[in-house]
Design a protein around this nucleic acid. Structure first.
Lengths: 100, 100
DNA sequence: GCAACCAGTATACTTTTGGTAACCTAGTTA
DNA sequence: TAACTAGGTTACCAAAAGTATACTGGTTGC
């Protein structure tokens, strides 16, 4: 839970799934999460080996984040969880999926 | 995450898996969780249909909690998650598994 | 009558998590 | 030289989650 249960963890992994993304792009893609949150989650995910961080020595220095094999399995997991939660009784219908 | 991410959710479902358990028994089985938490989680799980609550009109009133089919699928899920987390790099070895 | 057990509630508190806003450094374009 | 971009950091704040402890009201057995 601590690994994949963070508020923006799912979004981050999701946006990385199709290839590396730079920090600010990711930040824009997600929108609603502050840079601080993105940084925190990325650091955590990097530390856990779900995400890889690579500094590119381009002119204005840029940092690429990519999902690792382990991260992909985690994403699959989150997807299963989402599917599972979809078949829950309507009494538990969710209007806010940000935490899922 | 909101459904199964509560701190004691896993323990509760786990202890219910072999048949109905009464409130205080459950509380003792888990140990470390306050009655307030047990109550909160049980109410939430009941509301979500993972757990069934039945008041028995025995002499000293007793209440039985049992896991539903849906609850069993959730438990399977948590178990897969646990197995997955076991194969994470040792850098992420956890000394405290209470939240997992 | 009194303690002990049942299934909780209530109250107060601490910890953890998430969030805002402002700022920083270094390079870059106008 | 002012403003902008990238990739953050710092300080501070609010809300959610969890902990600790005490209390209720009914029931039984001693």
């Amino acid at each position: 839970m601590r690994i994949i249960g963070g508020k923006w963890t799912g979004s981050i992994l999701w946006h990385l799934k199709d290839g590396p993304v730079r920090f600010n792009d990711l930040s824009r893609m997600i929108g609603g999460a502050s840079k601080k949150m993105i940084t925190e989650r990325l650091r955590q995910l990097e530390h856990q080996g779900l995400v890889h961080r690579q500094v590119m020595d381009t002119a204005p220095i840029s940092v690429q984040y990519s999902i690792t094999a382990l991260g992909t399995t985690a994403l699959g997991f989150l997807d299963e969880l989402r599917k599972w939660s979809d078949q829950l009784p309507p009494a538990f219908a969710q209007t806010d999926t940000s935490k899922v």
